[in-house]
């Protein structure tokens, strides 16, 4: 009894807990969403198109690049292929999270995958690091909250952009970098003292590798290649 009680306090799999755990990231979604809406307007998208893009594509970096390519008049094939490459990192993220959710139905797994983003991935793996466990209701709460906030923020950003064309200089775009930094720190706090040095060395290696790769490939591709290489080196050099 005692043991059961203790276990249930560690892993509360409820939709509302997922919503709650999503709240700290909302500021990030709101900032980036507003920034995207503003940039969408300056890239000649209509508010309706900004809304549809955030509903259908639901990926910050891909949506920004979409605007950049669209306003530059790139052919549709180039826009679609670039979007694919930019979001290919989600393949690795899904692959990391999916093993913890196989006990749920196919349909629910499609749902988990469809709404996976950099941020929900970050929150989910931080939870896995702490508890070695993920609940489906918790995932849904996290995902749905993030999704609805994103759509609302992008659309409102578009409306703001119609009134304040220079809103991009507010520093909102830095929210994404700050959030990735915080998620990185949270993950590192949970790896344990013995492994921390190993991880810090890998991050040092990541900096050198990324710097070199940027001479040859665009940023999003460098991120993907460097992640695959450094993770492999991580496994090989593990003690």
């Amino acid at each position: 009894m005692q043991a059961n009680l203790k276990e249930s306090t560690i892993t509360t799999d409820s939709f509302s807990q997922g919503v709650k755990d999503c709240l700290p990231t909302l500021l990030g979604y709101i900032s980036i969403g507003l920034a995207f809406g503003v940039i969408g307007i300056t890239s000649d998208l209509s508010v309706l198109e900004i809304f549809l893009l955030s509903v259908l594509v639901y990926a910050g970096s891909a949506q920004f690049i979409f605007c950049g390519l669209y306003v530059a008049g790139a052919p549709f094939s180039v826009i679609i292929i670039t979007t694919f490459i930019v979001n290919l990192r989600h393949l690795l993220m899904s692959l990391t999270v999916a093993p913890y959710l196989t006990r749920y139905s196919t349909l629910r797994n499609v749902g988990f995958g469809t709404l996976l983003t950099d941020e929900t991935f970050g929150v989910a793996v931080t939870k896995v690091m702490k508890e070695k466990h993920l609940g489906g209701n918790w995932m849904d709460g996290l995902n749905v909250t993030a999704y609805l906030t994103w759509i609302a923020s992008c659309t409102i950003g578009g409306l703001i952009g119609k009134w304040l064309p220079n809103a991009e200089s507010l520093g909102l775009d830095f929210a994404l970098i700050a959030m990735f930094g915080a998620l990185l720190v949270l993950n590192l706090t949970n790896v344990g003292k013995s492994k921390l040095l190993h991880y810090l060395k890998l991050i040092g290696l990541m900096a050198v590798l990324l710097y070199s790769l940027l001479y040859f490939v665009p940023g999003h591709l460098a991120v993907l290649i460097a992640t695959v290489i450094v993770a492999t080196i991580g496994v090989v050099t593990e003690k």
Partner: peptide, 12 residues
């Protein structure tokens, strides 16, 4: 290793 690698890659 993917979480730490991908997050540090995005930041860097």
């Amino acid at each position: 290793y993917i979480p730490v690698c991908i997050l540090s890659a995005l930041v860097l």
